[in-house]
């Protein structure tokens, strides 16, 4: 079964929590573990934060969050129509940041890579950036058969 949702929201930091919770709620249809839900939340939070800080440089704009569920796969894309970038590879290097004065850790893309299975970044200066991430849900099913996941929560 294929299921898709799309949300458009203002590029305001207060919406970061809304975006990751929305994605997490949609993904629950696949019966993920708590850890898998947390992975998706973290990845969405990183991508949306990048769109707000770097894409729109904290000015007005819209962020587009799309989630597609297909089989046991989740596809998440976060898109902005902001400034874009010319060197995606450099931006994805761990600890690389264009905003050290904001104490950005430079770990945003590293986190997306760590918590999702795959990440694709399309960007053009002046056009915006689209980050598409995929993750297979249910990879650790045998360890969490009761569906409760982590007992420490």
């Amino acid at each position: 079964m294929r299921n898709e949702m799309r949300i458009e929201f203002d590029a305001k930091s207060v919406n970061e929590g809304f975006a990751r919770v929305s994605a997490a709620a949609f993904v629950t249809q696949l019966d993920p573990t708590l850890d898998e839900v947390a992975d998706v939340k973290t990845a969405v939070s990183e991508a949306v934060t990048n769109a707000i800080i770097h894409g729109y440089e904290e000015r007005d704009g819209k962020v587009y969050l799309t989630c597609i569920l297909e089989g046991d796969m989740v596809y998440v894309s976060v898109e902005d129509k902001g400034v874009g970038m010319s060197d995606v590879r450099q931006a994805m290097e761990p600890f690389y940041t264009t905003k050290p004065e904001m104490e950005r850790s430079g770990m945003g893309f590293a986190f997306m890579e760590a918590f999702m299975d795959d990440i694709q970044v399309e960007s053009k200066p002046g056009m915006g950036t689209k980050v598409t991430m995929t993750k297979k849900i249910g990879q650790k099913e045998e360890e969490n058969q009761d569906g409760c996941g982590d007992s420490s929560y």
């Binding site: 939340k41 939070s45 934060t49 904001m102 950005r104 850790s105 770990m107 945003g108």
Partner: peptide, 8 residues
């Protein structure tokens, strides 16, 4: 919940 902004 904490993301890389918190790490910073």
């Amino acid at each position: 919940f904490m993301d890389s902004s918190g790490i910073g």
